[in-house]
Design a protein around this nucleic acid. Sequence first.
RNA 1: GCAGGGGUAGCCAAGCACGGAAAAGGCGCAGGACUUAGGAUCCUGUUCUUAGUGAUACAAGGGUUCAAAUCCCUUCCCCUGCACCA
Length: 956
Amino acid sequence: MSGYDEMEKRWQAEWSRMKLDNAERDAGKQKFTIIFAYPGVTGFLHVGHLRGYTYADAIGRYKRMTGHNVLFPVGTHATGNGAITLASRVSNKDPDFIDYLIRNGCPEEKLEDLKDPMKVVDYFNTVYVNDYWKRFGFLADWRRFTCTVYPDYEKFIQWQFRKLNEQGLLIQKPYYSPACPVHGPVAVDASETDISKGGNAEVQEYTLLKFKRGNEYLVAATLRPETVYGQVCFWVNPDVEYVRIKNGSETWIVSKEAAEKLQLQIDGITVLSAIPGKEMIGWMCEAPMIHKEVPVLPASFSDPNVGSGLVTSVPSDAPDDWISLEALKKDPAFAMRYGLSESLVGSIVPVSIISIEGYGEFPAKDVIDSMGITQPGDPRLDEAKKQVYKDGYHMGRMKDVCGPFSGMRVEEAKDKMKQAMLDAGEAGIFYDLTEEVVCRCGMPVRVKRVDDQWFIDYGNDDLTERTSEHCRGMEIYPPEFYENVHSTLNWFRERACVRQGNWLGTKFPLDEKWTIEAISDSTLYPLYYIISLYANDGRISPENMTEEFFDHVALGKGDVTEVSKNTGVPENILNDIRGDVEYWYPLDINLGGKEHMTVHFPVYLFNHRAILPDWMQPKGILVNWYITGKKNKISKSKGGAQPIPGAVEQFGVDALRLYYAHIASMFVDVEWNEDSVMMYRQRLDRIMGTVGELLSSDQSDEKKDIDEWLISRFNGYSASIKAAMDRYDLRQAATAVYFEMLNDIKWYGRRGGNSKAAVREALRIWIPLMAPVTPHIAEEMWSLAGFGGLVSSSQLPAAGPVSGSAEYREEFIREVMSDISQIRKVTSADPKKIFLYTSPSWKTNVMRMGLEMMDSGTLDIPSLTKRCMMDEELRKNGKAVTEFVKKAVTDLSRATGSKRDATETDEYSLLVSAKGFLEEELGAKVEVFSSDSGSIYDPQNKSRAAVPGRPAIYLE
RNA sequence: GCAGGGGUAGCCAAGCACGGAAAAGGCGCAGGACUUAGGAUCCUGUUCUUAGUGAUACAAGGGUUCAAAUCCCUUCCCCUGCACCA
């Protein structure tokens, strides 16, 4: 129990009472609009998610305190089948899931409700807003909250798609998508939201090779159509039952499983009859492209679930083929069992077709040999296959035996040969998943052809170009993303934007049998936060939100009176909305997790560019990396991380916020670690304790040097922190605020600083700087200091002047102390007396001359020496001067600033004034001498080592 | 496959974009102070060397430069994201 609960809630209530969270248009103030990419409603969030959100709030708060009118709206994304899945798990009384809900604080009586997907959405919306964002002290404009499945939001999305259509950016074409027979298209991805198995599967394109035998075809599926010139035989699994199928006018033979898959991809396929694999062994069939008769041989590796279940054999470049052929040759008895004569098997010789640097005639053999694989079925064959494939693809060249493709690079030949066979009717295309995928409902997921799939045409050159161009003028962090966002935009092709099946989401306006897919309905939405305000309080309703309405408020089209008449929205409301849009748009910052670099951000940019005018184009993007779990990622679905309410209770909100802000740069992943958060908790305790002491201790009105130092330092921080915050570098800012400034305050006290005025001035600088990241404690201390008002609504004071000399003088003292303790350490002595000798003034003079020459660019050892020797006084000291000049010149060429200060500081009186302090700190008597003065106590002649900025030291 | 990031002290992590003083800050560790029993706090130290102002480091190896963790090249090793998943 942190005990901060009460304080946090008190200030949150106060901010709310003062309406700090509401964003209202104010023409006299510069606006700043920021959002974070809203989360999907898929369950409880964990501490990792708050990282990005916290950045957004801290930035918003900082902007508020630097003269901006800030709009920071939030929402959620419920499109998809997440809520449906959750609801069905509740309906099915899935014990794990029920337990998960209860454990995360869902009241038991709520469960009945959650059988309804929309209630699930509502429930989690409440949790996100109240338990996470409000609890974290965010100053978001809650009135604008929206969710992608709200009827008004859907109107907006439909409008957006009409606009895309007007631009000619919606296109239709066939598409191959993983689909469940019951639920339609499903997402196959590592998070396994839609599916229960096979998250790593990918859709792969196979080339179907047709091997003619009489009037039917044995159909093999291959990933390597470029190897057809190396075909020497054909593999059939003798233990598998295959089927004849009718495809148009042709009869094909494939595995039963493949037939089922093909039916989803090719119309009119019917199964004719079964045929055991055994029966086919020994057949001869004509290989495509090369038109040679090849024998059908038995192979156990031929899997009915993969591809067509039949495999063409290219031993030269396929390790499986090579090893299986070898095995067959070595075991004539086995071959005989299938009626294969030894001479037939023996006559099959691999054909070398691809030359790859570093490989011999038969790449497959080379890999097998180097990996030490000796028989079929070795699990490493998979790896061997990948190796040969990869090297062949990138470095390979087709050999002379490859007809018209001879000499081509494999990369190029692959497509050309595939196309040639397709054109000749010798091949087909088939899509399959790389591993078994099972839907949440238990049905197998297969690749299905969808004929009239709609796409958004992100491949459009003009759009890509204009979007890319706009990005050059944006503020995009990290810089790497600024650089490579262009290649991401270029890489984008058509993207399927609608889907069918049991999904929550907006109906596609051009054809309502489709539902708009989850990424596509979340591209232009920041704009909707401006309008949602009016929808949420009932000033407008979904029925009002026609195309004309959005054209007017978003694009400024049409005449208000006319639009008002047609939409039923009063003119003044239309004017207000339009005015808000003109004021708040575009977005200054869109903040999202690193995955969005290739997902949301590109489409966000594209859609803005496609639909909205120049002045509404986005200004900034900020990407945050993740908080990860130990070893593996913490994830929403799999859990493993601390629930947010528990963490809040344990550490307090501000400690968590500071943890996010400071633990690492935004652009690296961080492993979640409770001890680290605790450390930040303690640091905040220390700061509050220190400030409390400062406020309660007796202070004087007396002015001291150290006061000037403190204020100078704080002014310096104030400026550098603002600079850091302007770059959104919260970490650097936090280092200064929570570490360096505290250290300085401590040093100030140690040096005897206790001026009431200086302390108050320092706190007026310091506390507001804490407000963006740790607003609750900042507010608490602000009020404790009696500064009046809320620090959260105050403005950061302008940074005052920095005194270089005050800071140098203090640095000088610290270095003297450091040198003394250094000497003490090496001598392990415990001196009773410490003698300090400041530099003789002739050295200071030499240094000054050096600085002058440096300024005029004429500094070097001989010139400075010469100049010194012209001086009567210096010449007396000839040898020492030459030596010092050497040193001074090297020093000066490294760092000039501190040397300049050194020549301008009266070190003797500075040390004398610090004498008391030094004696106390060092626990010894301190004597200060100037090397210039005639009679000094210096038994070891240490004083000759003294230089400006570095007094000599003698311990005794 | 496509695209991108990184290797700095025992650990985390700044700095590298605009090359110029062992390299911020934190953690950990060691000593001390304090005074308590707190997941305290405060000092000091933490590459080596040395009565200090010296030497040497930034994955490895080359190069450019008066000067490189920072720029260029090569090699090795890690990591991340990738479209109907948000």
